[in-house]
Every structure is written in structure tokens, then in C-alpha cells.
Design a protein around this nucleic acid. Sequence first.
DNA 1: TGGTTAAAAAGGTTCGTACCTTTTTAAATT
DNA 2: AATTTAAAAAGGTACGAACCTTTTTAACCA
Lengths: 244, 244
Amino acid sequence: MSSDKINQNKNEALYLQIKDILIQRIQDGEWEAHSLIPTEQELMKEFDVSRSTVRQAISILVQTGLVEKTQGRGTIVKPQKLVGSLGRLKGFAEEVVEKGQTPRSRLIRSEFSDQLYTEKTMLEVEEEASILLVERIRFADHVPVALERTCWPYDIGNILMQYDLNEARYYEILEHHNIFLKKASEKIIAINATQHEGDLLGIRPGEALLEMTRLSFGMNDHPMEFTKTKYRSDQYHYDIELNR
Amino acid sequence: MSSDKINQNKNEALYLQIKDILIQRIQDGEWEAHSLIPTEQELMKEFDVSRSTVRQAISILVQTGLVEKTQGRGTIVKPQKLVGSLGRLKGFAEEVVEKGQTPRSRLIRSEFSDQLYTEKTMLEVEEEASILLVERIRFADHVPVALERTCWPYDIGNILMQYDLNEARYYEILEHHNIFLKKASEKIIAINATQHEGDLLGIRPGEALLEMTRLSFGMNDHPMEFTKTKYRSDQYHYDIELNR
DNA sequence: TGGTTAAAAAGGTTCGTACCTTTTTAAATT
DNA sequence: AATTTAAAAAGGTACGAACCTTTTTAACCA
């Protein structure tokens, strides 16, 4: 077992620190789906805190839907839903497949950098940290549809770099490593294609593009992905259902 | 104040009984929106329970979104959402007001017509029926932001025609007549402004616009509104939260 | 009168204890 | 071996106390 320590002096509530550790263990697969997590007593002993503190931490996992409690039995890890469940929170590839086409990519750039200050701010990483930047052209069948520019924190970037980024479906890979998205916020604007963008997408400069900026958050509410995608408007539109 | 009692002997947890009472008071309007509910101390005294029990009850209200807590200040009743409740299903005016600006309109056209076949199909009205078409330029303060073109079935159009369409907030009016929206589907694309559109919006032709098409449904699941709005991209963007 | 400072108020965090209810386990019985 | 029964385990509910952090209020001073 990883021997995580909580810091009494740190300026963060104990139950929040514990919550983060528990989430980490679930995402690392240390505690598998359908299995019991340690009892409250055991967690009290491990972290040397009171029962109410442990219960506070766990109650957050319950709210998040990560675990489920049964009186007399214990607390089990719930199997995570797939990405599809979160409304429209899908990757490009998934969307293309749904339309019966074949998703393809061409990798433009992939590198770690510590210079992308805007992106680092969005991802809430340390001043000196590096993040991974990947730029790709996305195709549906053989038609260029979008320019995709995505940043991840260092840890996640390291995972993704093990794969062929020319074909990778990010969300699938991350799920495979038990990293799940909890929510995301998107901003959509219309822009005019630059000469360069027009060349890459095979359209005239000045054509209207749909630019979608997305910041995704993981189960621990930390930013996990910052991505900006520019879509050819003749090949893509954004649909959404609003219910109350 | 209503003097609700909780029953120590009853086979229901005290905090659940209290929770139900608190919810009742909010729904009855006894505790109004934006106002502070009694402090934990006062509730402890009233129900003769410990602080943690009161906090347990309130925490449920927080999860439900009924109240909001602020350390040092207290617990306030959140306003029950009106139209806003359906995610982003708001009218232009509401959105502008939320940004602290003043919504204005200039009426371009308003007429009943039986010729708009596309729109009539979307609204699922009879072959021979007339529908109301209203076109407006929408301003935030004095900046032209969007071109709005909305169609309604005859009955609803009749209601709206009683108002000054130059200033009307459709959704407010409809709510006032107890017509509520249940859901809507939106499609968003990017387009290039035509000469005419550029003139109306005060931008150059060819500038990228965000075009949002919305079909809204009422409580009876019948289409109630079909609207197409073209937004200046430098003045407007589309935000959305995706949760699982 | 206006700004500063100190106190009070309100929720936030953490500990400890006690007892209840449900489920599981193990022992006893048939 | 199957059933019944009792004990243990695990989470659920409730109390009380102490101290912290943020916000508001009130007193004070310039």
C-alpha cells in the first residue's frame, strides 16, 4: 500500500487531504471496483484521525458517486461510468464514430514545455512545472475537420506519451488508466480562419470556424485537460439538448 | 413561525425530520429567497438537538441546492430558478442582465405568415396555419450584439402581439401566462456575415458569426418556439457546463 | 465623518464518546 | 450437514466540547 501522509500543519483540512488520497487510490486501481475499501476504523488508525474526519472524507466520495456504503457491510468502490455518460463530453473520435465515419489524425507537434503560461494557469500547475502540448489535425474519413491543441499536466502527459499520439484517443487511454472526467466547462466562439489554419484545413482564409475551448476536471476537481479545437463549420456543428 | 415538533421516539432519524421541516419552510415561503435562515445555534435551541444534527440536516439542503452557506455570514436561501434552471435555456435579455448590462432591441419585422414552410414544419403546425415571425436586432447597452429571428405558433403569437415587441422579453411574458419551457435542442454553427448582416450589426461582411438555432418544447412536448440568432463573435460567446 | 481596530457572530474543522441498526461471521444445536 | 442463534463487525445517529477562519458589527480614534 502507498503510505500517504497527511499534514496536521498544512493549511488544508484533514478530511480534504484524506479525500484526495482516497480518490487517488481508487484511480490508481489500488482499490478496485466492486471491492471493499478499508473500514472506518482502519482508516482512523492509518491517518491517525477521528472517526468523524474519516466519515467526512468518505461522504464526499459518496456524493461524487465514487463509492457506495452499506450499513453493516462496508464501503465499496463503484464501477466508473464511461465518458459517454457525461452528456456531450466526448472526444473527437467518439463523435466521428457515432456518425459512421472513420476518425483519423495527423500529429503536428507534441512536446513538454514550461513556457505555456496561459495554459499552465488554466491547469493550475506549479510555476516551474512542465506540461504536455499536443497539436493534431483531425479528419473524418479523409476530410480535415478540426485543428486540435491540447495541454495536460505533466503526470498525465507522461501516460499519454507512451502511446502513438498520431492515433490516440485521449479519453479512452485515460480511462484505461482509471482517470475519469467529472465535469468540464466549454466556451464556444466563432472566428475567422487565418491563412495558416486555412491551409491545414483545406479552406479559404477568412472562412468562419467554430472554436471550442474546454477545461476538464477530474474526480478530485483538479483541472486535467485544457483543449482548444477549431472546427470547419461546413463539416461540424455543435448540438446540445437542454432539459430542466 | 410554525412550531413544528420532532419526535425522539419516531423511527426516523432526527436530522431527516429536521431536514423535511426546513425544506417545508422554504417551499412555503416562510424563509424567502436571499434571506438568512436561522443560525445553527437557533435551530439547535428550537429543535433541542446538538449542533452536528442541525448541520447534518442543513448539509442535505446544501447538496440539494436549496441553500448556500457562507462562513461568518450564515446560510441563505437560494432563489428558485426560473427559466434559468434549464441549464442555459435563457433568453437574450436574461443573459445580458446577468452580465450587468442593459438589454435593448430594435424591431425589424413582426407579422403573421402562412408561407414559412420550413419553420412551420419545425413547429409542427397545420398545413394552412399561420405563425408569428419576429425579427429584432438585440443590443447590450448600445452595442448591437445579435440578430434574432423567432417563430411561434399562432396561439402563442397572439399572446405576444399584445406586448411591445420592441422591448419584450419573450420568456418572461410566456411565464406570466403560465407557459413554461420544458426542454430545447440547440444547434450551433459558425457562419460568415453577409453584407446585410454586417450592416445591421456594425461589422465588416465576412466576419465570423455564431449562429444558434433553437427549437423549444413546452410542458406538453409540443414545439413552442423556433429561433435562429446570429451573434457577433467579438461580443458574445457560448458557455456551457458539462457534468456527469 | 470616515477610517481603523477590536469584539462578537456564524459557520468550519476536529476530537471523543456512546449507543443503534444492519450485515456478516462463527459457534452451537439438531 | 443444515439450521439456528449469538457475537462481532461495520456503518448510522447523536451528543458535547474545543478551537479556527471568515464576516459582520460596534466601538474607537483621528
